[in-house]
């Protein structure tokens, strides 16, 4: 396994374009969180016993990590795979497709980690967390959430014929997930059948882990949530490896 040069290549490009990238990945979810938290929070009062901004913080954190991992593994990875032929160029060297995909997986996770850290920093600065020591557990949760959605994104990328294809994923998967997984309101507000569906979605599990940690509580059933996220991410990566091999190396 020699994935590091692939990660490094992406990092080299990112360094050049860091400012717009940071704005897009970090500022956008932050504006949503602060805008909705302060604005809508005025009308809502407390949600689940905490101010709306505090409630929103964990959801925004998970959502921001998901978004950043998804954009990187869809639009950016697709550019490298299909448009710029970067992966083809790398495959002519001693590196294997597994190296390329592992490098991309960890790169997208690194970018999503940065997005998550930015939201976490805001949570700390605004004092939205109840217990600092518990909030440190958000770091591995961010990492796991990043791995999960980067893995899924690479799987979608492996079957994409063009950029437009990603609209399906965003409109049919990401957006419903954001609305159902408890980013903006507690999932128990949903009718039972819909809540049951929401329980299958990976973002729900990321938020079930993150929200108690912001509110100073230990998550219920942490192992279950961790396993679901790991399973989605692992299955996504495995699928990506097989489908991309069929796409590029046949």
């Amino acid at each position: 396994m020699n994935f590091f040069p692939v990660w490094q290549r992406n990092f080299m490009v990112w360094r050049k374009l860091a400012l717009p990238s940071i704005l897009g990945n970090l500022a956008d979810p932050l504006l949503y969180m602060l805008g909705l938290g302060y604005g809508l929070g005025q009308f809502l009062g407390d949600v689940n016993g905490v101010p709306y901004l505090t409630f929103l913080a964990a959801g925004t954190l998970a959502y921001s990590v998901m978004n950043s991992a998804s954009f990187e593994t869809l639009y950016s990875a697709f550019s490298r795979m299909h448009v710029q032929k970067t992966w083809d160029a790398i495959l002519n060297t001693p590196l294997s497709l597994a190296d390329v995909l592992l490098g991309e997986w960890l790169w997208a996770t690194s970018k999503s980690l940065l997005s998550g850290l930015a939201i976490l920093a805001v949570i700390w600065v605004l004092g939205l967390h109840a217990d600092f020591a518990l909030s440190l557990w958000l770091l591995p949760i961010i990492l796991l959430t990043g791995l999960c959605f980067s893995g899924l994104g690479l799987a979608v990328n492996s079957v994409a014929p063009n950029y437009d294809f990603f609209m399906y994923y965003f409109t049919l998967v990401i957006t419903p997930m954001v609305l159902l997984s408890g980013v903006f309101y507690p999932p128990d507000a949903l009718p039972d059948w819909l809540a049951g569906f929401a329980a299958l979605l990976p973002l729900t599990h990321a938020i079930e882990l993150a929200r108690p940690l912001v509110l100073g509580q230990v998550p219920a059933q942490p192992l279950l949530h961790v396993l679901v996220l790991a399973a989605y991410g692992g299955a996504g990566f495995w699928l990506a490896l097989h489908l991309t091999r069929r796409r590029l190396l046949c």
Binding site: N2, P5, V6, Q8, R9, M12, V13, K16, L17, Q84, K85, T86, D88, A89, I90, T93, P94, L95
Partner: peptide
Amino acid sequence: DSLDPDFTVQENLLAYGRYFG
């Protein structure tokens, strides 16, 4: 063409050399 459009001439060689360890 599979050159990296975001890189300079030199950076292209640098990134590619790393793939060879």
